[in-house]
Computed example of a mutant assay.
Amino acid sequence: MTSHALPVPHQSGRGNFAGTFGAVALAAYQPDESMFARQLLSIQSQTHSNFVCLISVDGDHQRVAAMVQRACGDDGRFHVLGYDDRLGFHHNFERALKAVPESARWIALSDQDDYWYPEKLATLLPELDGAALVTGQARVVPPHISEIGQDRSSGGLTDRRNVGAADLIANNQVTGSLCIFRREVLDLALPFPSLAAPSQYHDHWIGLCALACGSINIRDVVLQDYIQHGGNVVGESRQSLPTSIRNTFRFVKRYEGRISPRSVCSIIYKTGLGWRTLMARTLLERLDLAQYSTSPDLRDSLLIYASPRTWALVGLVIRGMRGGNVSPMRALEILLGTVVRRIAA
């Protein structure tokens, strides 16, 4: 592992987050050098500069370390954490977060191929005074559009929204690369729960932990480009039913080893319900131990997902879909997972 002495942070008063020291956790895996360098430079050019950037590399870390050196020079804020084994993006982010220094009051997550506008951190940090996690929106564009310059009028926009606990569990609204959160969220979130399934997302878990620590504030301000290209591990997709079915069989081969009725049912359950049940159970266990102040809405929703009662769960999902906060495809995934669980019971 490549390591360096972390810089001594400058801390302002404890009453607000503007100007405070924090950490940017970036997960890298075989990055395209031009897009990676552009993202690193956008982080380096933030108007708020009091941070350390921890880059966790999922294999081939020496190559990535050389890229960081070429892009950032001798900037002591940037540190490469190199590993030979590959864990996937969920646990690669976990490795970066485990390295966050105790003195960091906030954490921002970064993908390897986006582009942050210079004011991103400075805009979001003051919002942490009133929320455990805050996120903005992003312009969704291909690389060639993002590289044109500062014209932010073209391209589509993300549509993240503030929702209740039940809808957040069903349909994640927290995109890791858009958000920033308080230290206490990290303390609750580590270690990450783990499930061998495509539905396992670090930002979904962190979002629930943020609700337990206070609240989430999603602002309608565009603060970065969310770049979509052929190599995205996770993207801003709008899957059709046929695409979802094809992906299910692809995931069966990847996570279950072979295609059989049992393995197909296993993936359907894990994707639709299993991951959400695991998150709910894990968070309830930690909330009991840490004695967090949890809203009745969050507590009741966690209890329903932790020990799924069919009609109560169906009611939550249908209400979320009718309210426009749970997509029909996500609702279908959860309901299918519920059906498979009932058949297997």
Results as ranks from 00 to 15, higher is better:
P242Y: 14
G155M: 14
E127M: 07
N172L: 06
D129W: 06
E127A: 14
H202G: 01
R139K: 15
L223C: 06
S146Q: 05
L208S: 02
A189F: 05
G231T: 14
L241C: 10
S237E: 14
E102M: 12
I145P: 01
S110R: 00
C213K: 06
H144D: 13
G231C: 12
Q137G: 02
S215E: 12
A210R: 02
Y201G: 05
A197D: 10
A99C: 11
Y226M: 11
E236L: 06
S240P: 08
Q150D: 15
R161V: 09
H144I: 10
H202W: 03
P191L: 12
L223N: 00
A212T: 03
P118D: 15
T135Y: 03
S240R: 12
A210F: 09
E102N: 08
F192E: 08
S199M: 11
H204C: 01
G235I: 09
T158D: 05
R238Q: 15
Q137D: 10
V222H: 08
P198K: 10
T158M: 06
A104G: 05
C179V: 05
P193A: 10
S237Y: 13
A165Q: 02
G149P: 05
S240Y: 07
D159Q: 09
Q224T: 04
D113V: 09
I107E: 01
L186K: 05
D203G: 00
C209I: 04
A104F: 05
G164F: 07
V140D: 08
P101R: 10
Q228A: 12
Q224A: 06
L133F: 07
S194F: 10
S153R: 15
S154I: 07
V185M: 07
V221G: 04
N172S: 13
D225Y: 04
N162D: 15
P118N: 14
D113P: 02
P118F: 11
S146F: 09
S153N: 06
P143L: 13
D220K: 12
G207H: 08
I206C: 07
D129G: 04
N172F: 06
P143G: 08
P126R: 13
T175D: 06
S154L: 15
S146K: 06
I206K: 02
I148F: 13
A165R: 02
E184C: 02
S153G: 04
G149T: 07
L241R: 08
A196I: 02
P126A: 13
H229T: 03
Q239T: 00
P198L: 14
A131H: 10
A132Q: 00
P101T: 03
P101A: 10
R182L: 09
G156V: 05
G235Q: 07
N217Q: 14
V140R: 04
I169Q: 03
A131I: 06
T175G: 04
L121A: 14
A132M: 09
F192T: 04
S103I: 03
A104C: 14
Q224R: 11
E102K: 15
D113R: 07
S215M: 12
Q150M: 13
L195Q: 06
I227Q: 00
A104N: 08
A212G: 08
A165F: 04
